[in-house]
């Protein structure tokens, strides 16, 4: 599904991604771990196209997208959610999901009145709202939603695009324990054929949902393996020092 080969990114003399290689099978759920500044979000930016790599290649579903623009990658089935909420403020939850669903369906140029409100779009909106637990908040303006709901919507926007590959950047960033459980259930309930790459700082959740784990440090892949192997890796322990014992 996703093949990343020798991906490098330099800002001037500073290497923020060094020779990153990754391979994700269809339906695989890969969790990316690493301390702050390890280059996790940079990796996502490179994959989604907001940054262009200095060298290396990215293949999505057999197509080379290394230099493709952001929107092209999205149309090929890549969707992402952000660590910091990146929503359509001022609109309702329904309008937010509707924008995502219509854009992904490629019907943005339609001048037909109310094409947005067609049955097909309403079905997607209802289904995604159910998945992320926002069915009761559909007609609330985003601005009046509590933070946890906004985090759910953040993932909902990515899901409404009906992606093949979903990049989730710390979905639980800033939320309390109850919400972390909710996200655990949410991710488990997603279809098994959806390939996911998840940055997560909550180890329990990370290990719980992961099929496999990649650990980044200083822009490099320092470990890759099953959740079990990761738990036992000495190298990974050293990176996190004492913090590891809490996990």
């Amino acid at each position: 599904m996703l093949e990343v080969r020798n991906l490098c990114k330099n800002f001037g003399g500073l290497a923020v991604a060094k020779n990153i290689s990754l391979s994700l099978k269809k339906g695989e759920r890969r969790v990316v771990l690493g301390p702050n500044g390890a280059g996790k979000t940079t990796l996502f930016n490179l994959l989604a196209g907001t940054l262009t790599p200095t060298s290396g290649s990215i293949i999505l579903g057999g197509r080379n997208i290394t230099r493709a623009p952001v929107e092209k990658r999205a149309r090929l089935g890549l969707a992402r959610s952000y660590q910091k909420n990146n929503l359509f403020e001022g609109l309702t939850v329904r309008e937010n999901l509707g924008l995502a669903a219509t854009t992904a369906s490629g019907r943005t140029a339609s001048l037909r009145c109310c094409a947005h409100d067609g049955a097909e779009m309403q079905d997607i909106i209802a289904e995604v709202a159910e998945q992320v637990g926002l069915s009761d908040s559909l007609d609330k303006p985003v601005s009046s939603c509590p933070y946890g709901n906004r985090r759910q919507l953040e993932v909902g926007l990515a899901l409404a695009a009906r992606p093949k590959l979903l990049l989730m950047d710390e979905p639980t960033s800033g939320v309390g324990p109850n919400m972390i459980d909710a996200f655990d259930k949410l991710i488990h309930a997603l279809p098994r054929d959806l390939t996911m790459l998840i940055i997560e700082h909550d180890f329990d959740l990370g290990f719980n949902v992961a099929d496999s784990i990649t650990v980044l440090n200083y822009g490099e892949v320092v470990f890759e393996g099953s959740p079990e192997a990761t738990r036992q890796s000495r190298e990974v322990k050293e990176i996190y020092l004492g913090d590891w014992n809490h996990a």
């Binding site: 999205a74 359509f88 403020e89 001022g90 924008l99 854009t103 490629g106 695009a161």
Partner: peptide, 14 residues
Amino acid sequence: GIHANEDRMQALGL
């Protein structure tokens, strides 16, 4: 949507 959040619209494929 563009008015509200241009970057997100692009990330969604527009």
